[in-house]
Design a protein around this nucleic acid. Structure first.
Lengths: 191, 191, 191, 191
DNA sequence: CATGAATGAGCATTCATTCAT
DNA sequence: CATGAATGAATGCTCATTCAT
């Protein structure tokens, strides 16, 4: 017996993503996914019990993958500043390179699909970075009084906006601008 | 003859907003809007030619209204810092008090409904604040090298995230935290 | 008190006729009639209890009027041939000049609106001509054996087709052709 | 996979035809068709993209089929009179046996569905008979001066009316009456 | 009488899901 | 496993009719 073709699941996910960018989560239909993935509608239901489950599973996959990407190349031996910068750049890169995925995630967040449990899961993903900031503060690397959660929000929101305006063509990024942006954020940490 | 009730358009808009919060733009249907607004489906089509137009008009209304709110209480006689703070607080307040509206606007932004023209309109709304920062820089009130567009993004993204986490209950705001947040942003401007 | 404006009823009828030509009976709606007649929808219901009644009344009016036109200029003192020709020409003229009306009548005939009673009424309208042929036969003016009902059908069908092809531009009529057509029909009567 | 049932298209056509007779083209709805054909509404849209296309295709099918029936049993070796009679009877038979179809075709002709192209196609269908008459005239089989188009109209219109009154029960046909009718028409051709 | 806003049943069409092959 | 035809509930929208003004 052939095992369920795992690639097919990925092709389905990819198709859903492509469609989200084109028409938003609102516009996705099972038959459009099937056509984009070049399979029959019925086949979708072999891999996913319902449309809802397809969307849910895609969400979990994306959320997990992106959490991984945030910590790429990071390890404890790095200095605090280098560590922060690594993660900062990872996040910016992620928001730009995986823009399709980001759109899906944000739309999912305010869609009928999301559950409380998943909101909590999303919050958990932020823990590693948050903890890094905590440590930095304890070791006096961060001089501002502001609590680390606030600092984290400031970083996150900034990068998000940065990536968005870059993609939309309103503020195109290059090495210099990225460096300037990071400095701006770094200064906020208060040294 | 029953006269065309102008309030009704607002009741329809309100209903659409309530539904967006509940089920996302994806989940809105004309019959749900009608039920929420306590009118007949057919009546919707007296005020809006199609569903698309209803959504479009709501977008324009919200975009315009929010632009107004950003500049509330602001006038040229204020010192630069006070001016910035006024706007900063306006924006935070707006993102919190008009959360429903904000969700709609963001979903609209990545929906099949938005047009290029509307993206440009949204960009235009930011001009006043952007110009204020430009002036501040020229007058040496901002000491950082970073260009004002970047500064603006940093502010916007931060506030956005702040409001979001407040609403979601992950970082509840109070006067002290708001003050701290503003100081963080202000420091970024470089004094 | 002003009496119900009789002209308005005619304006409504005219509007219905214009629309039938444009979009067929199938395509007529009350609001289209109202717009074409330049009155409000509600007003239609002052003059006609329902859409069905409007259509019914229009039918009766047209059927009656056309019956009149068939016998125009005819009187008993005319010779048999002249009498037949008068009616023959009347009918041809009617089918051409009142083409709009004819279309309505034919569509009505196979629409959900018609009743058995009306079918009988339509049949009755043919009586005068039919009787003329009967008389002609009794007086030996018609030599063919065929019964007068058959002769009548032959005339009616021919004229109908003639008018139709003229209107459609497939066989444009002029004095000569009309004369030729009548001769053809006349010869059938058997002299 | 369930294979696409070609019979189903015919069942749908039949249902549309039955309904046309009952309520006219005006009264046809997709759900009525579905119910009459004993399938689900959605299924209709597997076989026809829109209601309009369903109606169009039915028209083309009927127009083509009836053209075939007109020429049944006819071949060049027949004498002129026998040839004409064959076609004449075919047409009468067609108008009676395929009355439902005829009604559809006539209603279609004055419906919003018809296109100029289709009107021309309908005109083309008449060519073979028309040509036969032309030949007859050239060979002196027809003695009247009248042009063959006129003769053709006379035949067509007569048969049409004949069939109609037969169906409506106003002039019931039998062998004798049919023979008499044909003789009437034949005499018109002028011998 | 006249208006046209309001109504809700009904229409054409779509879409998630099932099922025969 | 895979297919796509079949299903029927649900959608956006229209339309005959009513009703407040």
């Amino acid at each position: 017996m052939r095992t369920k073709d795992l690639n097919k699941k990925d092709r389905i996910f990819k198709a859903a993503l492509v469609l989200t960018k084109k028409v938003g989560i609102a516009g996705i239909t099972m038959s459009k996914i099937a056509k984009e993935a070049q399979i029959a509608t019925g086949t979708l239901y072999i891999y996913f019990k319902t449309k809802e489950e397809l969307i849910h599973q895609l969400y979990v996959k994306l959320e997990t993958e992106s959490a991984h990407r945030f910590l790429q190349n990071y390890d404890d031996s790095l200095s605090f500043k280098k560590g922060i910068k690594t993660i900062w750049l990872n996040y910016l890169k992620h928001r730009i390179e995986y823009f399709e995925e980001s759109i899906f995630l944000e739309q999912y967040y305010h869609s009928p699909y999301i559950t409380q449990q998943q909101k909590e899961m999303a919050e958990d993903m932020k823990q590693p970075v948050y903890r890094l900031l905590e440590t930095g503060k304890k070791n006096n690397e961060i001089k501002t009084q502001a609590d680390s959660q606030l600092l984290f929000l400031a970083m996150l929101g900034f990068i998000r906006e940065l990536a968005y305006e870059h993609i939309e063509g309103n503020y195109e990024l290059n090495e210099d601008r990225i460096e300037a942006a990071f400095q701006l954020n770094w200064r906020m940490l208060g040294s």
